[in-house]
């Protein structure tokens, strides 16, 4: 079987795949990067917290100009996953304003980003529209 690793530390491949936040023990603020302390309350202890895998697009853009090597256009978005905001691309959708909207319901999805010289696959994440819910406003 092909060896797979998550593209970032905060993606757990599962199954099922999901994101894991660092949640402050004191105030429950959530973060995805590695932490020195809590920016909200100054607490220094954290625990892992699974993030909802379905959410709603709160903001998006369709990027047409990006660094060389980045396929465009693509949809970059902020997704509200049950009260935890997540940055990610909206995938498996036509990248135009007719097919993407704020308020749209989406779910976490994973795909292979690339394969290195050892044959290891890096698996990234994005969000795809929830079937049957395309008119989110």
């Amino acid at each position: 079987m092909t060896n797979q690793i998550p593209f970032v530390d905060y993606l757990a491949l599962g199954p099922p795949p999901h994101l894991v936040a660092h949640e402050c023990d004191s105030c429950s603020a959530r973060y995805f990067d590695h932490r020195n302390a809590c920016a909200a309350c100054g607490g220094v202890s954290f625990h892992d917290a699974d993030v909802d895998t379905v959410g709603e697009v709160r903001a998006f853009t369709i990027v047409s100009l990006a660094a060389p090597g980045i396929p465009v256009p693509f949809v970059a978005a902020v997704v509200d996953c049950g009260g935890t905001s997540v940055r990610g691309n909206v995938t498996n959708v036509t990248p135009d304003p007719e097919h993407v909207s704020v308020g749209m319901k989406v779910r976490l999805t994973t795909s292979v980003v690339g394969v290195d010289a050892q044959g290891t696959e890096a698996v990234g994440f994005g969000f795809e529209p929830l079937e049957g819910v395309t008119n989110g406003g």
Partner: peptide
């Protein structure tokens, strides 16, 4: 983020 390669374009946009 412990990323194995650059994030821009793969997880949202930096632009």
């Amino acid at each position: 983020f412990g990323q194995v390669a650059p994030v821009d374009g793969r997880i949202g946009t930096d632009t």
